[in-house]
Amino acid sequence: MLRIYHNARCKKSREGLEILKNSGKEFETREYLKDTLDEKELTELIDKLKITPIQLVRKNEKVWKEEYKHKDLSDRELVSVMVKNPKLIERPVVETDKNAVIGRPPSEIEKLL
C-alpha cells in the first residue's frame, strides 16, 4: 500500500498527492502535522528512505534556525526533535511496504509507482 505524508499547505506536497491520484493506484494520505508520527514510526520511515535523520530536516524552518541549527544532535535526538516539531519533516514523503522517497522534486514519487 502506498502512503503519502502530506501537508496540504505545501505546494510540493499537493503536487505529490496529484501524482498519486493520477497513477490510479490505491494509496492513503496521512496529514502528519495533525496525525503526528511517533519515534518508532519516524525511525522506520527514515530507514526506508535510506537516509540519515538530518537529511529529513527542513533546515529553513524558523524553529530549526532558532532552536537547533547550532546544536550537535545525535540521530536519536534529531528524531525526537522532528517528533516534537513535525513541521521540520521534509515533505512530501511517499512510502511503500519496503521503500520510501522524498517527493522533492515531486517526480521522485514516480520511482515508487
Rank of each mutant, 00 (worst) to 15 (best):
E15C: 12
E15D: 13
G16S: 08
G16M: 07
G16L: 09
G16I: 06
L17S: 03
L17K: 12
L17H: 07
E18Y: 08
E18N: 11
L20S: 08
L20Q: 08
N22I: 04
N22A: 14
S23K: 13
G24T: 14
G24V: 14
K25M: 14
K25A: 13
K25I: 14
E26G: 15
E26V: 15
E26M: 15
E26H: 13
E26P: 08
E26D: 14
F27P: 07
E28I: 15
T29L: 13
T29E: 14
T29G: 07
T29K: 13
R30I: 12
R30N: 14
Y32W: 04
L33I: 09
L33D: 08
K34D: 08
K34H: 09
T36E: 09
T36S: 10
T36C: 11
T36D: 04
L37Q: 02
D38Y: 01
E39R: 06
E39C: 11
E39I: 09
K40E: 13
K40G: 05
E41N: 06
L42C: 00
L42F: 04
T43H: 05
T43D: 11
L45K: 08
L45W: 06
I46Y: 04
D47G: 13
K48F: 06
K48E: 01
L49P: 02
L49T: 10
K50F: 02
T52N: 05
T52L: 12
P53G: 01
P53D: 00
P53E: 02
I54Q: 12
Q55I: 07
Q55R: 10
Q55H: 04
L56G: 01
L56W: 03
L56H: 04
V57D: 01
V57N: 03
R58Q: 04
K59P: 13
E61G: 08
E61I: 05
K62Y: 05
V63M: 01
K65N: 15
E66R: 02
K69W: 10
H70S: 13
H70A: 09
K71N: 12
K71I: 12
L73V: 07
S74F: 09
S74H: 09
S74N: 07
D75I: 10
D75G: 12
D75S: 12
R76K: 11
R76Y: 01
L78H: 10
V79D: 00
S80F: 02
S80M: 00
S80Y: 02
V81T: 06
M82P: 09
K84N: 10
K84S: 11
N85T: 03
P86K: 00
K87Y: 13
K87F: 15
L88P: 06
L88V: 03
E90L: 01
R91G: 05
R91Y: 05
V94T: 05
V94G: 01
E95H: 01
E95P: 04
E95V: 02
T96I: 05
T96N: 03
D97P: 05
D97K: 13
K98I: 10
K98Q: 09
